[in-house]
Computed example of a mutant assay.
Amino acid sequence: MYLSKVSFKHSQFAREQLIKQLQNGAYTSHQLVWQLFPDQPDKKRDFLFREERIGASIGFYLLSSEPPSAAQELFDVQTKPFNPVLTQGMKLGFRLTANPTVSKKLNPDDKRSKRFDVMMHAKKQLQQQGETDKKRIQQAMTEAAQGWLMDEKRQRDFGFRIDIVPDIVASEQHHTAKKGIKGSIQFTSVDYQGVLTVTDPELFKAKLYEGIGRAKAFGCGLMLIRRI
């Protein structure tokens, strides 16, 4: 695997594309990142990316099975191999942009579950109970997002353990259009930051490569790690 840092060049063309991206939302980022693989137009997506705000501009971190093209009119690209050596009990600082969702049955007799955005579900539940205090609603939404990542089964499935509740650095509700789909796609992205302990090195590495959670086409799922 390869980890890349991608930033817009200082050119008129790059500025025009940046303005379009800022106006059109998350799916435009996905289309821009695809340009880093010009020889693979029909290949299934096998990369994860994370958008980073840099002042008035943006950049991306990109994890991919093949190195992105460095011959770019639009981007400056810095790439290095990514194959972390992990051991059980290792502590790592992490940053993660994820789309926290859960599947629930609305009624016990339902055969199918419905997928919920955990933050918006928490907000809706409080509002239905008559809560109007914005601070209390926001606190409940934050706790719901933290609870999603702190879920013990989810952590076992991901091969790590988090002992201290992670910080929510930012969260955003997105409404974005996608080619071939009527209307807009709605999802929430949450930026987590914290410390984890590796419990299953091979499983954790597989999840790093696969991505965590849903909405990967919209810049969610990539976890950045560092030794501490």
Rank of each mutant, 00 (worst) to 15 (best):
P67S: 07
P68R: 04
E52C: 02
D46P: 02
S29A: 15
P41Q: 08
K44V: 11
L36F: 07
S69R: 06
K20Q: 06
F47E: 09
E52A: 04
I19P: 01
G55L: 05
N24V: 00
W34G: 03
E66M: 06
I54G: 02
R50W: 02
L32Y: 14
K44E: 12
F47H: 13
S57G: 02
L36G: 10
R53A: 09
I19T: 12
A56T: 06
I54C: 03
D42W: 11
A56G: 01
N24C: 00
F60W: 07
F37Y: 14
P38C: 06
A70E: 15
I19L: 10
L32S: 13
L62M: 08
L32E: 09
Y61R: 14
S69Y: 02
H30P: 02
F37N: 13
G25P: 02
P38D: 06
P68F: 03
K44W: 03
A70V: 15
T28W: 10
S64L: 09
H30C: 06
Q23M: 07
T28N: 10
P68C: 07
S29I: 10
V33K: 07
E52Y: 01
R45Y: 00
R53V: 12
P38R: 06
Q23A: 11
L32Q: 13
I19N: 04
Q21I: 03
D46Y: 04
F60Q: 05
V33R: 07
G59A: 04
Q35W: 13
K20L: 04
F60C: 05
G55Q: 06
A70F: 12
K44D: 10
L32V: 14
A70T: 15
S64F: 08
Q40F: 09
E51W: 03
A56R: 05
A56Y: 01
Y27V: 07
S65M: 06
D39I: 00
Q35E: 15
E51D: 08
S69D: 11
F49L: 05
F47T: 11
L32M: 14
G55D: 03
W34H: 10
L36Y: 09
P67R: 03
Q35Y: 07
I58K: 12
I19M: 05
P68A: 09
K20F: 03
L48D: 09
P41F: 05
D46V: 06
Q31I: 01
Y27Q: 14
F60G: 05
S57W: 02
L48P: 07
G59E: 00
